[in-house]
Amino acid sequence: MTIEVKNISKSYGASPVLRNIDLKINSGELVSLLGPSGSGKTTLLRIIAGIEEADRGSGAVVFDGEDVSDVDLGRRGIGFVFQSYALFKHLSVFENIAFGLRAKPRRNRPTEAQIKEKVQSLLELIQLSSFAQRYPSQLSGGQRQRVALARALAVEPRVLLLDEPFGALDATVRRELRSWLRHLHDTIHVTTIFVTHDQEEALEVSDRVAVMGNGRIEQFASPQEVYENPANEFVFKFLGNYNVFHGRSGAGALVRPHDIAIFRTSDGDRPDAAQTAVVAHIGFGGPVVKIELESDDKNRVDVELTAQAYHDLKLQRGEKVWFAARRAHSDFPPEYAI
């Protein structure tokens, strides 16, 4: 199902939270809303779900060409997964997942046998078949998250909306669930929007990323596009670490740590623009090695090398080296005044 958000605005009292949001999501797409905390991601997701209402007269939420702005939360055909999971504490895993099926009006409510079969197949999907009779409190964070997802999927929603689904989990479980979600999406192809403030997560999982800042969508494009061709300075800065180099004109050039090359002092093939610096710190991070340089004008320069490149260079702390930017971003349009 396609989802269109047309010119949606939302304010709480006098403070605007969303400003004229436009977004068009294709059927079967997995889109992430990525932005810093407080940028309005949750609010937008809740407006799409129908939990929150947009400002009067501001715009519409359209599902498959049909305006659903005035349709109740329960009738939009959405599956919502809350950041807090919001599992029903007093119900077993089985009953949690069955809740939506049992709540259907009598005439299209499945029989007990059908409910059982459906829940069983969902339990298999989330790999928790033997946990049916457990209570939410007896599950780990990652398991709760999967139950919340299964509960939302039970009613076969047209759209799946996930609010920071992995926000409260530790790094390993996060990474595991992330790829699991991607696989799940490839299997069931339900249009999915998920909110996150984690750049890596958004870039890795989504078909397209909507980068949000301060109540606006700053860029909506494929992960590669937003990373390689950020639409503006905000997007560039939010998507990763960077160095600022001030040229003679005063304008700053922005350079990613991995876009800086390091040369040995003895190298003959370094570019003319290369500058000298001293290796101030070396930090190992698995496949990536983080080098901190101190340039001649006493500025700190962060560099990321692949482990291979690092080994080839045989860098030592305190050593004098040359460095140069392979790629700089300096042509962003000036930030618009509000």
Binding site: L73, G74, A86, K89, H90, F99, K104, A152, A154
Partner: peptide, 24 residues
Amino acid sequence: DEELAALSLGASGWRTFFKITLPN
């Protein structure tokens, strides 16, 4: 959140109250 989850799953207001809020 639990009430909203129940409503989003299509439960009526009454059902949400008696099955979720009250037991809690």
